[in-house]
């Protein structure tokens, strides 16, 4: 249930960006966030938190769009790079564990759509 806390942090970051837009927008249409595959975030819970925390605010009715980022890794032993499937960080070529993550831990706002 940490989705509520994460949504609270999202709103903080979003508001700082939104309030800085000149001229002030007429409203928010959507916000798109990128979630790395390794995060254990339940989309439905996050959407529920978004609906609850934005109701009766300037963002009420705005859409939360989730984009998921697959995990990519690099094998330090053989330089293989590619998509990995957590939980296994084992190199598909040389079969050695220890693949280093190059993508999959992201958690950021990518874009917003405002009403003008």
């Amino acid at each position: 249930m940490h989705e509520f806390s994460i949504c609270g942090l999202l709103l903080k970051a979003l508001t700082e960006e939104y309030d800085a837009i000149e001229p002030a927008p007429a409203g928010l249409k959507s916000v798109t966030i990128v979630i790395g595959e390794l995060h254990q975030i339940v989309p439905d819970y996050l959407q529920g938190a978004w609906a609850a925390l934005t109701a009766d605010t300037d963002y009420g009715g705005a859409e939360l769009i989730l984009e998921f980022q697959a995990s990519h890794g690099i094998c330090p032993a053989c330089d293989w790079t590619g998509t990995i499937s957590p939980p296994l960080f084992v190199c598909p070529t040389c079969k050695i564990p220890g693949v280093e993550l190059s993508a999959g831990k992201e958690l950021f706002i990518r874009k917003i759509e405002i009403k003008t």
Binding site: E17, A26, I33, I109, R110, K111, E113, I114, K115
Partner: peptide, 17 residues
Amino acid sequence: MTTKEIKIYRDLMGANE
């Protein structure tokens, strides 16, 4: 109503960080 897209790239956990 017109809409406009703004790219942001901002870490979501910033306030905790």
